[in-house]
Amino acid sequence: MKSAVIVFPGSNCDRDLAVGLEQVTGRKPAMVWHKDAELPEGVDFVGIPGGFSYGDYLRSGAMAARSPVMRAVADAASRGVPVIGICNGFQVLTEAGLLPGALMRNAGLSFVCRPVRLRVENSQSLFTSQYDSGEEVLFPVAHHDGNYQADEATLDRLEGEGRVAFRYLDQCNGSARNIAGIVNDAGNVLGLMPHPERAVEPAHGGTDGRRLFEGLFETVSA
């Protein structure tokens, strides 16, 4: 699997994601700077990492979503290349219009930083094939703006089409219907606030995130 990790000024989980991907795929991802207008030739997976791109100026993810590299990411996504946005990456994907809805300030106003229990809602997605539907997993969260909101019609559509990939088991940040992660209508773009790349090796305190990358690797390599 030839993967790329996008790096914005202010990204801080890019290395974690790269290490996780290398462990699972055996191959170092290309680190792609936000000013690059193109992704490396033949990339078959794109990761948008967590962090505080552009200092969260204007809105979290707003500036990053308009950076040159995101046009290339949108092109790749439209060709069906799997794209995952984690935490700030999820915010970037919603701001770029690649996923519906918006991530607002946590309802409790506090930065939330702890492991949270999630339910895998759909094990049929490109990203969740190694999980069972309804399975409980533990991923860390670390965010200030993770409160997922969309209008009722959008929420109903996401639910009806099985596009809610992960749901918080306990109230975490005020997200509508406790949504933690969603996929786009084509199923190749996933955004989620919790950090699977921080639950890859036992030293992290858990390895529930590893299967997300393993499932993706298996699908892409097949």
């Binding site: 308009r66 918006a102 909101q149």
Partner: peptide, 9 residues
């Protein structure tokens, strides 16, 4: 529409 406001919210 393109940057200053997020018209979703």
């Amino acid at each position: 529409r393109k940057l200053l406001a997020n018209t979703v919210i």
